[in-house]
Every structure is written in C-alpha cells, then in structure tokens.
Computed example of a mutant assay.
Amino acid sequence: MKLMLRAFGVASCVVWGGLASADPILGTWQTEADDGAYAHVAMKPCGPAICGTIEKSFKDGAAFTSPNQGKTLVIDMAPQGGGAYEGKVWRPSNNKIYLGKMTLNGDRLALRGCVAGGLICSKQTWSRVK
C-alpha cells in the first residue's frame, strides 16, 4: 500500500509539474482576415521556443484547402516574460518573413511583424479557438 501511495504521489507531481510549465500560448488561434482569408494556427513547442503551423484555412467564412496549410507561420517565438514573445512571422500573402513580437492577453494574441529595422510594421490580433 505504501509503495502504491508513493507511486501515485510521484505520478501526481509529474502531471501537475507538466501542466504548470505548459506555456499559456499553446493551442489553436484564429488569425485576422488577410486578403480575404484567415486561418487556424496551432501553437506548439519547437525546442525552447514556440512555433505556429497553419492547420485550417478559410475564405469568406468557408473552409478551403490552401497551399499554405501545414506551413510554419510563427517561427521560433521565445518567451520574454509577462506574456511577451519575440521571434519571426511569415506572411503568406507576400511570402516575406518579418521580425515578430507577440503579446498574450487572455484569449487575445497581439502580433506585430516588422522589416527595415522596425520602420515598416504590420499588426494583427488573433483570438483563441475554443
């Protein structure tokens, strides 16, 4: 019985420890419409950072098969603390990679991508898909 209780205690610590260290940005997010289309992006760990891959694509509210599905949109976003992340963002509509920043606020994710040393930037706010 003691061995069983110890095993349960160790298993509980592993499960709760893993949940406590899970990044709150993980999950699926809906982008804003860009050139009439939007996507669901799955945010997952990629090494010590977070990456986001296009899972589903939508145009005019209807799902469609986009050539961008499965591609990485959010690249190596490293947590900076306080819900802030820094890395890179790929914009499919012009096939450019931008220096990126993200800020998490509840179920809203503000993204900003910049080029030319921050002179030219684009912003979007994504919402968590439930």
Results as ranks from 00 to 15, higher is better:
103 T>P: 00
77 M>D: 06
19 L>H: 05
59 K>H: 14
127 S>L: 11
110 A>C: 03
55 E>N: 04
126 W>L: 10
73 L>R: 02
40 H>M: 09
23 D>P: 03
7 A>Q: 03
2 K>C: 04
117 G>S: 05
43 M>D: 01
43 M>T: 08
119 L>P: 12
48 P>S: 14
33 A>W: 00
59 K>P: 05
68 N>D: 14
115 V>L: 13
34 D>P: 01
29 W>I: 11
68 N>T: 12
19 L>K: 01
87 G>E: 00
121 C>Y: 05
22 A>T: 08
97 I>E: 11
13 C>N: 05
85 Y>M: 07
99 L>P: 06
58 F>Y: 15
118 G>P: 06
8 F>K: 05
50 I>S: 06
128 R>I: 08
2 K>H: 10
129 V>G: 11
9 G>E: 00
18 G>A: 13
9 G>R: 01
7 A>I: 09
99 L>A: 15
44 K>G: 12
56 K>S: 12
41 V>M: 09
100 G>W: 04
58 F>W: 14
81 G>N: 06
49 A>K: 03
56 K>E: 12
113 G>Q: 02
44 K>V: 14
117 G>I: 05
111 L>A: 15
118 G>V: 09
93 S>Y: 13
50 I>A: 13
85 Y>T: 11
81 G>M: 11
23 D>S: 08
11 A>I: 02
